[in-house]
């Protein structure tokens, strides 16, 4: 066979595989969503609470540092520029709007994908290669209810909450730089921030965070379940879960922004 034919065939096979995997992931997500009604039922309560706790606590330290410094960097960069025109009192709105609209949900999602998402992929991947998933299936315990649903609930709930936390810390970081480096008082900073940042900005941001939470769970669980080849495979699944989550978060984030701001 000639090279172009062969490579076309290979591309075709890859596209089919991609469609197949996506379908698989979608089915998993739908089924887990249906099971959400049992999140606090007798059988799943414990796991759901554990996952909520793990998701909330695991990444708090990193989120704190990243959010504070992002706010500070944003304030410093835009503040120095604004200062050249004597407009430094506007850093309040500059920082608040960009953090609430985009940076807050986006950074939170990246951190959660890298910490919580990768841990999910590694755990479910290990369970897959050590036959634990097969054991659940034989015991007629649906992994989508038993494992995916509690993680879905945890990420869909915690992502918006953590995003609010990121927003607050980011804006505070900006305020610190404003007061210490740019001579903008805290009250002037906050006045300006609340004047320009709207409720719509906040709600669209939180909606994004919620969607990102679902994306991270779906990608990580799916990659975990698809793991083959033992420990090496677990490493691969973990890495892939982070990379794929990042890509989908970027694309979907753009689409949501377009949807609400055009």
């Amino acid at each position: 066979m000639t090279y172009p034919v062969r490579s076309a065939q290979r591309t075709g096979a890859r596209v089919l595989q991609l469609l197949h995997d996506t379908g698989h992931a979608m089915f998993m997500l739908l089924e887990a969503t249906w099971f959400v009604q049992f999140a606090f039922g007798k059988r799943s309560r414990h796991e759901t609470v554990t996952q909520l706790f793990v998701t909330g606590v695991k990444s708090l330290a990193v989120i704190t540092v990243v959010a504070l410094f992002t706010g500070m960097i944003l304030a410093l960069q835009t503040g120095l520029e604004l200062q050249r025109w004597g407009q430094e009192e506007f850093i309040g709105s500059a920082v608040a709007v960009s953090i609430i609209r985009e940076m807050g949900p986006f950074m939170t999602a990246l951190i959660i994908a890298a910490s919580v998402g990768s841990a999910i992929a590694a755990q479910l991947g290990t369970m897959t290669v050590s036959e634990e998933i097969a054991a659940l299936e034989v015991m007629s315990i649906n992994p989508n209810r038993f494992l995916v649903m509690p993680r879905l609930v945890a990420l869909a709930v915690m992502m918006p909450i953590l995003t609010v936390y990121t927003n607050i810390l980011g804006i505070m970081g900006g305020a610190v730089v404003g007061a210490t480096q740019l001579g903008v008082s805290f009250s002037a900073y906050m006045d300006n921030a609340t004047q320009f940042a709207t409720n719509k900005d906040l709600f669209v941001g939180l909606f994004k965070a919620f969607v990102f939470g679902i994306i991270i769970t779906t990608v990580s669980c799916h990659q975990g379940f698809m793991t083959t080849e033992g420990a090496v495979g677990v490493g691969k699944a973990t890495r892939r879960s982070v990379v794929i989550s990042f890509l989908i978060i970027l694309i979907v984030g753009y689409m949501i922004t377009r949807l609400f701001y055009i």
Partner: peptide, 24 residues
């Protein structure tokens, strides 16, 4: 089924592992 690797859930203790089918 007793799997080749026993396939116990790592985050549950021995008793919870054995109790799992009953609880479910």
């Amino acid at each position: 089924v007793l799997f080749q690797s026993a396939a116990l859930l790592q985050w549950m203790n021995v008793r919870d592992n054995v109790a799992l089918p009953l609880r479910e």
